[in-house]
């Protein structure tokens, strides 16, 4: 699904990973590396610079996978998840006054 690119970058298969998952993971890792994502033909080219000590690109890709799984799950479970979240928030915020 991913392969190493020259200069320590990675190539992510666009059939598996969405730009959103790559960007979300980049945000999670923003305090550990500057991550840039460029769309190619059927792939995303990911490059890293300014890595903090201990940063490993594989950890970033694990987070990409986590975010992608979450996005895929959200599509399947959005109805149930949305009902639960809406119920919880509306109940907590108090009754809505109906207009006469």
């Amino acid at each position: 699904m991913t392969k190493k690119q020259n200069k320590g970058g990675l190539v992510a298969d666009a059939a598996v990973y969405s730009a959103e998952a790559l960007q979300l993971a980049a945000f999670v890792y923003s305090d550990r590396a500057e991550i840039s994502i460029k769309a190619g033909k059927g792939v995303f080219n990911v490059s890293f610079c300014g890595e903090a000590p201990g940063f490993h690109p594989g950890d970033y890709m694990n987070e990409v996978l986590n975010q992608q799984c979450r996005l895929d799950l959200a599509k399947q479970n959005s109805k149930a998840a949305g009902m639960i979240a809406t119920k919880a928030l509306l109940s907590a915020a108090g009754g809505t006054k109906k207009k006469a």
């Binding site: 986590n66 799984c69 979450r70 799950l73 959200a74 479970n77 149930a80 998840a81 639960i84 979240a85 919880a88 928030l89 907590a92 915020a93 108090g94």
Partner: peptide, 27 residues
């Protein structure tokens, strides 16, 4: 106001992110 607090961004973000139906392993 009470309503503003309970519908704030942080409150909504916590509700959405702790919903197990949207957590890959937990679901």
């Amino acid at each position: 106001t009470y309503r503003k607090v309970l519908t704030s961004g942080a409150a909504r973000a916590c509700v959405l992110s702790s919903n197990l139906e949207s957590q890959p392993d937990c679901a």
